[in-house]
């Protein structure tokens, strides 16, 4: 299949594959192990899916902030994102 029309690159393809895999894993988890929403520090009920969304959205902003303030050195930003993800899944 020709993919030129979408102007694919290897990094962006990996990026979307990782997101698609994450979504699949979380869907399977939600079906296999249904869970009750819980109240976190944001004072709102969240499920695993909500926490994933907050993590992904927050990570996008962390990466942008890193790019704007520190400069293009994304592996470090990803480490911050990882810490953020752990915090979100633990406390939100």
């Amino acid at each position: 299949m020709k993919m030129e029309w979408m102007a694919w690159t290897t990094p962006t393809a990996i990026f979307f594959i990782v997101i698609a895999c994450t979504l699949t894993v979380f869907t399977v988890l939600a079906i296999k192990f249904p869970e009750a929403p819980r109240m976190g520090i944001l004072r709102t009920e969240t499920t695993r899916g909500d926490r994933l969304f907050i993590t992904l959205l927050g990570s996008a902003f962390i990466n942008l902030a890193w790019l704007g303030v520190v400069g293009a050195n994304q592996p470090y930003a990803l480490m911050v994102c990882l810490a953020y993800a752990v915090a979100v899944f633990r406390w939100v």
Partner: peptide, 17 residues
């Protein structure tokens, strides 16, 4: 997804990135 792909590339037209 196409927009994301565009955002990391440069083009001068002719579908060359």
């Amino acid at each position: 997804m196409t927009v994301v792909n565009y955002s990391v590339q440069d083009t001068f037209g002719n579908n060359q990135f």
